[in-house]
């Protein structure tokens, strides 16, 4: 460990919810999308599941909202090193969508893609078991466009670039296929507790 001369840093907080190398952003919620925020009305939003599934399907806004609701209350972690605590997202569990399309046994990974064309890859195991959502509400309000509204993927146990904004669909695959940031040197999985920021971490 190379100590930086004269560096003390901010007051230490004993926060077991803070992954290594992260800090608490407090009330801030930085926006880091690399593309132009799209003008996407709920009426124009669709969400599709296809690839290695029995019955590919597309939902529109109303059809998705007719599914049983589910909420996530907890923290989110960005690879740029901020974390944000006590968020409340509302939407539908991805399990609910997956039950409809019935993934093949050969499906091991997925590429999530946005209405902007942004992509990110995830192991299917990170998208099932009540750990992933399609979210359209945050803290009781419609999700703002700059944060991915009308709806985004939410996979809060991974770094937040995996939670694709303006989600348009997921394609299930039998192999891993790097997405936008992953092709730009970011880690394939992005587990904040193991500090998987960049490829090779």
């Amino acid at each position: 460990m190379n100590v930086t001369r004269g560096f003390t840093g901010r007051a230490r907080v004993d926060n077991p919810g803070l992954p290594p190398g992260q800090y608490d952003a407090g009330d801030d919620w930085p926006v880091l999308s690399a593309e132009v925020t799209p003008e996407l009305a709920p009426a124009d939003w669709t969400f599709r599941l296809d690839g290695l599934v029995e019955r590919p399907r597309t939902w529109d806004w109303e059809q998705a909202h007719a599914l049983p609701g589910s909420a996530y209350e907890g923290d989110i972690h960005c690879v740029t090193s901020w974390s944000k605590f006590g968020m409340r997202f509302g939407g539908v569990s991805l399990d609910t969508f997956l039950e409809v399309v019935r993934p093949h046994e050969s499906a091991t990974h997925a590429v999530a893609y946005s209405h902007t064309g942004y992509t990110t890859n995830l192991p299917l195991a990170d998208l099932t078991g009540g750990r992933a959502w399609i979210a359209w509400e945050c803290d009781g309000r419609p999700l703002a466009p700059e944060h991915g509204g009308p709806a985004r993927l939410l996979v809060p146990h991974l770094y937040f670039w995996k939670s694709a904004k303006w989600i348009a669909g997921l394609t299930l695959l039998d192999h891993d296929e790097p997405g936008f940031w992953e092709q730009n040197g970011y880690h394939a999985r992005g587990n904040p507790w193991q500090e998987q920021r960049y490829s090779g971490d």
Binding site: A34, E35, S114, T116, G117, G169, L173, G179, Q183
Partner: peptide
């Protein structure tokens, strides 16, 4: 890699 069926970022 995977090409999304939407406009390409």
């Amino acid at each position: 890699g995977f090409t999304p069926p939407t406009r390409f970022a």
